[in-house]
Design a protein around this nucleic acid. Structure first.
Lengths: 143, 143
DNA sequence: AATGAACTTGACATTCATTTTCAATATTGT
DNA sequence: ACAATATTGAAAATGAATGTCAAGTTCATT
């Protein structure tokens, strides 16, 4: 049992939820997925493994993960994407306007400035989303 | 005629579009609106002035403004918001997770770092969205 | 001013992701 | 084993974004 698993099971128990195989499937597949993923793609990924699962269950579990603090959402391209939050460092993204490719990056300096500005505006930050749209190197060249 | 108006009318003409009162209404109300606004709220705002207008027209005109480079979109709270782009400096946002209030801010330093990172990743930036979610001072106190 | 090709309008329909519903099924404490 | 309660997933509902199209408007040309 990884730390995330322990944390999640404890969270569920405290919330008065019952253990369920379906929920575990979603949780495990989410854990295995390093990059951000949409509810639908996660659903497909589980089905492709031959597992039987409904979309609602995937959706509900992801929402639960967010509530539990294990995941967080970011919206782009008209879709909600879920990414790790627990024991994972935060990412910002470059998104290619043409091909949709995403490149993750991190910047401690940006984070630091954000916190400073938040304080200045009497704002307690919880999470943030930084999306930079533009052209990736491929799409620049293809013209 | 402001510079934006001249620019917009020229753009329309070049694009082979005809002049129209409805389009002007949308454009003018958008100009008057300093903060970001959703298509639906802009639609309401025009209607409340006693003007007759269809939602499609508002929506289409806003999309046109984006294409013309006068507006840009940012998505949060499950809605697309339109903000000025022409002769307006770019804003980043604090968004209160509780009451939805937004606070605009700018940070030249963050912009600079973004450009540096983009270069490092061979990415040509076009626009960006920085949303910091958290609690505004009111919601912190209300507990 | 009349013409006609092309653009605009807005009510309505459609699409698509997200969210809810609910009857059948599974889990858990006693 | 029982009862209370949670889970599941197919189907329906929601809501924002986008497309459709017949009727109306614009504008260069005659």
């Amino acid at each position: 049992m990884t730390k995330s698993e322990v944390y999640f099971q404890k969270y569920c128990r405290r919330a008065g939820l019952k253990r369920s195989g379906q929920r575990d499937k979603v949780f495990n597949m989410f854990l295995k997925t390093e990059q951000h993923i949409s509810a639908f793609r996660l659903f497909e990924k589980i089905r492709k493994q031959g597992e039987k699962i409904g979309y609602s269950t995937v959706y509900r579990t992801l929402r639960l993960l967010v509530k539990a603090g294990l995941a967080q959402t970011l919206t782009f391209g008209g879709e909600t994407h879920f990414e790790h939050k627990f024991k994972h460092k935060h990412h910002d993204y470059f998104i290619c306007s043409k091909c949709g490719k995403t490149i993750e990056f991190t910047s401690p300096t940006i984070e630091r400035i954000q916190n400073r500005l938040a304080k200045k505006y009497n704002f307690t930050p919880q999470k943030h989303t930084l999306l930079i749209y533009g052209l990736c190197i491929n799409c620049q060249n293809k013209q």
